[in-house]
Design a protein around this nucleic acid. Structure first.
Lengths: 84, 84
DNA sequence: GAGAATTTGTACGTATGTATG
DNA sequence: ACATACATACGTACAAATTCT
């Protein structure tokens, strides 16, 4: 059955991932620096913890960030980013 | 789920992922067939839904399975598996 | 050294949406 | 009409390691 619905909204976690990724590639979050904590992300973007975590997990899988337990999540060197 | 590991308790989701992966590579779950649903997995292994999902997400990232909404999760063709 | 706060990781709970059979 | 099944989304709690007071 064809889905006749108009374009559904992209998932929250995907929108959040793209926003954070944009801040990385634009330099707002510089390589080797710490990005906001999961808690801060939930507060700034008003999303749940799992949603924020989903976005970060995806960014990690893409090679943009590297979470370090107890310390924070850091922007990976640009050499580790995709197609770079 | 029973923790089969001694001292350095590995995460439940990781143990579950390895168990399911073993069933795939051993042929218990054959390529292009459907593996048990998330709900069935939670019941057989006595884990939470998120834990089962984490294991499946990892298997998907590795290329062993492909979840299809509304239908189920299917074993990928062996050609798509790692190092093969 | 003790204790509190922070931060990621793990784990479970619950509800809703959407598509399929 | 109903059950199944994956996806999304919020909530809660505890563990381990680090940092700060």
């Amino acid at each position: 059955m064809i889905n006749w619905d108009p374009a559904p909204e992209r998932p929250l976690w995907l929108q959040l991932m793209e926003t954070l990724r944009q801040r990385i590639v634009s330099g707002t979050y510089a390589p080797r620096t710490k990005i906001p904590s999961l808690k801060q992300i939930t507060q700034e973007f008003e999303v749940g913890l799992n949603t924020a975590r989903h976005a970060i997990d995806d960014l990690e899988a893409q090679g943009y960030v590297r979470p370090v337990p107890s310390l924070g999540t850091f922007v990976a060197p640009a050499e580790e980013w995709p197609r770079g």
